[in-house]
């Protein structure tokens, strides 16, 4: 059975190659640091499960020291042809250039739909729980083969270009993973329980509107702290939603749950803790302001939070 481990090996090999290219990248003043950073990440992907928990912990600390001190990681030159060359190349290839780019999502999608059903004997070909990520990796491989066959670039070009892009993202590339790990530590230490109790104690329980508002705004705020609505939902629903909206005022649990989660998503739009949605794209798009994407999203996030609150107040209680 193909599991996520195969995808981790693929990613590990990519990070290893990027580390190697960084090492010999004389345009990068901090090439040794970059090589060490991506090399350690390669170790994590290739052998993380064999390192043991403490070994992984030390690896993470090493990554943080490399990225967090001495001015962080460096950035090599682009190795990108000048704009005129790229424009001429774009005219030459025309819309065929979109084919490999669109092959990634198309193959990922087909894979998600089809691979789930493929079986060898009575064993599934791919781990059914991880079919989306495995299909994404498959999409990348298919797209890369297509692009190489079509464009015939030097064999090193894909890795060299991946290094260029990863240099622009820098340490932000591991921030989402790090925040996911922080969420796990928060859960272990019982942060959610404390927050849920505080929230449950703090609100005036006799007004329907304030109870609803405490729940939706609480979902958004705790999502902003945790970085995702999935972590906030059980805490806020156990602390406010179920005891007050459902049990005390007889609210509909389906409407509460649905609109509660969507209130959490409003929080996701407004927090740097949701790094994969907000900080990573700012780095990918080379915005000078790390919070540039969040700033654009805040008005929509606040307005939708208000909409969710009013909708829940109008819809959740029995008539």
């Amino acid at each position: 059975m193909i599991t996520l481990d195969a995808v981790y090996v693929l990613a590990g090999l990519l990070f290893l190659a990027i580390a190697g290219f960084s090492l010999v990248d004389r345009t990068n003043p901090k090439r040794l640091k970059n090589a060490a950073f991506w090399g350690l990440l390669a170790v994590s992907f290739l052998g993380g499960s064999a390192l043991g928990d403490l070994g992984n912990g030390i690896l993470v600390l090493a990554l943080v020291v490399l990225a967090g001190f001495g001015g962080g990681l460096g950035r090599g030159a682009g190795d990108l042809p000048p704009a005129e060359v790229r424009e001429a190349s774009a005219r030459r290839w025309g819309n065929r250039l979109f084919i490999p780019a669109l092959a990634i999502p198309v193959v990922a999608l087909l894979g998600t739909l089809v691979l789930k059903t493929v079986k060898f004997g009575d064993r599934p070909l791919v781990d059914p729980a991880q079919v989306t990520l495995i299909s994404l990796a498959l999409g990348v491989v298919v797209a890369l083969v297509m692009a190489m066959a079509m464009l015939r670039p030097p064999m090193t070009a894909p890795v060299q270009q991946a290094r260029r892009l990863l240099d622009t993202v820098g340490w932000a590339a591991v921030l989402p993973q790090m925040l996911a790990a922080l969420g796990a530590v928060f859960a272990l230490a019982g942060v959610g329980k404390v927050v849920g109790q505080l929230a449950g104690d703090a609100i005036p329980a006799d007004s329907r509107f304030f109870v609803v508002m405490a729940y939706t705004v609480g979902m958004a705020l705790f999502t902003m702290i945790m970085g995702n609505g999935f972590a906030a939902f059980p805490v806020m629903t156990a602390g406010i939603g179920l005891p007050l909206i459902v049990t005390r005022f007889g609210g509909d649990p389906a409407i509460m749950g649905s609109l509660g989660m969507l209130s959490g998503f409003c929080g996701t739009l407004m927090t740097p803790m949701a790094a994969n949605f907000n900080i990573v794209p700012a780095a990918l798009l080379e915005l000078p302001d790390r919070n540039g994407v969040i700033k654009v999203q805040v008005p929509t996030g606040l307005l939708l939070l208000a909409v969710n609150t009013v909708l829940m107040y109008l819809l959740v209680f029995p008539r």
Binding site: L4, V7, Y8, L10, A11, L14, L41, S44, F45, G48, S49, L51, D53, L54, N56, G57, L59, V60, L80, P81, R86, E87, A88, S89, A90, R91, W93, L97, P100, A101, Q130, L133, L136, A137, V140, A143, L144, A147, M148, L151, P153, A157, P158, Q160, Q161, A162, L165, L166, A173, V174, Q177, M178, A180, A181, L182, G183, A184, V185, L188, N276
Partner: peptide, 29 residues
């Protein structure tokens, strides 16, 4: 615990696999 959680969350970083393809296509315009 932090190390274990980091290792268990590696799936979050899988998205970087797309970089070689995107970079290659960017190089070609």
């Amino acid at each position: 615990a932090f190390g274990k959680a980091f290792n268990d969350s590696r799936y979050v970083s899988i998205v970087w696999l797309v970089l070689p393809v995107i970079g290659l296509l960017e190089r070609t315009g």
